Amino acid sequence: MEDLKIYLPQEIQKKKFQGLDGLRGLSIVMVIASHALIDLIPAHARYIGKTGVYIFFVISGFLITTLLLKEKLVNGSISLKNFYKRRAFRILPVVYLYLIILFFLNIVYNLGITRASFTTSFLFIKNFSMHKDWYTGHFWTLGIEEQFYLIFPFLITILPLRFYKRLVILLICIIPPLSYVYFMKIDLHVFHVNWSTHLALGLAPHLFGQGTVLILIGSLFSILFLTGSNFINRIYTKANGLVSLVLFLVGILSCISVFPWYIENISEVFFGICIAIAMLLNLKEGSFFGRTLSWKPLKNLGILSYSLYVWQELFTHKQPWNGNLFLNITALFVVAGLSYYFYEKKFLQYKDRFRKAESDTTVHSPVMTPAL
């Protein structure tokens, strides 16, 4: 069976994609606002921060898959070794700097962060850990990103793209209902399974159900876009300039738990699809939302988004030194800026040495996690 053919749409040939830096900037604002105002806003409104993280997941899946498929098209193969080196130089330096500084703050301010919490953060397995604390709580997202990087780029490399696409669709369809059954403990009540069976069934939801599905949605839409899917082509050519904004807002509303249409683990899939389509439509020059997201302050925030995400737990809530919220947020931006421009960029120079696809059509890898 002939494999799917990869194409490079005009929008993908650009060095910068319209709207994506701004979308990251908007997402990090959602995260910071949610954490900084956690004691002042209703519980359901705090979900806006998690929604910001979910947007990062979709962007990450789209950009990583686009990068890998582009490398395959330009060079005929994908270098996993260089991919992992690029990811390591982007993600690890600031994370480990944060943990080192947090280690000393834990001693000075007696923050109560356990050795196990540091260990699970260092190993990027926080999403599996029962050791929770505020200052490393955001590492659950970094763990999900790292686990995706370890598994799925390898699968993209060894599997025909057609089979990889089918696998991704299968996981997107299966994991959300399985996660719903597991986390709601329906299997214990309806199927009368014992705890050991319940925990065994939880491996897939823990590994794939807490954000990975959203990364896979981004990955799937990258494949659909780069292989000329009729479904995507129809939407892309017929949608007007406001559709991406409408889809973005509908996606956000679908994930607010107080609304009657919200179904845990299921609504997130609908959200991911809305964000993925909106993201693709933002690539078009005529997209109103894409042009809005290209506003320079939002783009600059997007560039700093990973740095801001790593450092923000220290400055948005439960600050060891207390202090004025405005001063703490100002300090966050100062620290993140210094971290990015005077520390992380030195490692980014090394990262670029391992970029195999060197041409005018090079795709830039994502800033977050948020990896990216």
Score class of each variant (00 low, 15 high):
Met1Glu: 11
Ile6Gln: 10
Glu11Thr: 13
Ile12Pro: 08
Lys15Ile: 15
Gln18Ser: 14
Ser27Thr: 03
Ala33Ser: 15
Asp39Thr: 10
Ala43Ile: 11
His44Ala: 13
His44Lys: 13
Tyr47Asn: 12
Lys50Asp: 15
Ser60Cys: 08
Ile64Trp: 03
Leu67Met: 15
Leu69Pro: 06
Glu71Phe: 03
Lys72Gly: 06
Val74Phe: 09
Ser79His: 07
Lys81Thr: 10
Phe89Val: 06
Leu92Ile: 14
Tyr109Ser: 04
Tyr109Val: 02
Phe124His: 11
Asn127Trp: 00
Leu150Ile: 15
Leu150Cys: 07
Pro153Glu: 06
Ile156Pro: 03
Tyr164Arg: 01
Arg166Gly: 01
Ile172Ser: 07
Leu178Tyr: 04
Phe183Ser: 00
Met184Ser: 12
Lys185Ile: 08
Ile186Leu: 12
Asn194Phe: 14
Ala204Gln: 00
Phe208Arg: 00
Gly218Arg: 12
Leu220Asp: 10
Ile223Asp: 03
Ser229Arg: 11
Ala239Asn: 00
Phe248Cys: 02
Val250Cys: 11
Ser254Asn: 12
Ile256Asn: 04
Val258Glu: 06
Ile273His: 10
Gly286Asn: 14
Leu301Ala: 07
Thr316Asp: 11
Phe326Trp: 15
Thr330Arg: 12
Phe333Tyr: 11
Phe347Met: 01
Phe354Leu: 00
Pro366Gln: 12
Met368Cys: 08
Pro370Gly: 09
